[in-house]
Amino acid sequence: MKTVSPFLELEDAPRVEVSFDGRTLSLPTGANLAASMLAAGIDVFRNTPVSGAPRAPFCMMGACFECLVDIDGITRQACMVEVTEGMLITPPHSAEVRHEPS
């Protein structure tokens, strides 16, 4: 399913399928994962462990850790990872919320 993305892609590269949170995405192979997820219309990458607030890439250079996702079970910064075929991506420790709102 193609989602309308707020981002425009200038390049077209061969695509491979990955899965994010149960959705199948077709992303350019070898591309920056965070960038290509944004271009595919993914606007929320995770929810914070403190309040559950939605977050998405902020710095794109490995410093802010906002783009954290679990890739094949290991938590990674999506902006520091290249797209490979068949990646199984989920929001990080989706079930865990550290502080219950009082």
Binding site: F7, E9, L10, A39, P57, M61
Partner: peptide
């Protein structure tokens, strides 16, 4: 500033440089 869709200008440049991705709006 923590809302999805808010990024640093540097991030905008990195998206353009490395990935050829531009924000439409």
């Amino acid at each position: 500033w923590t809302l999805p869709g808010v990024m640093t200008a540097g991030a905008g440049q990195i998206l353009l440089k490395q990935s050829g991705i531009l924000a439409r709006n």
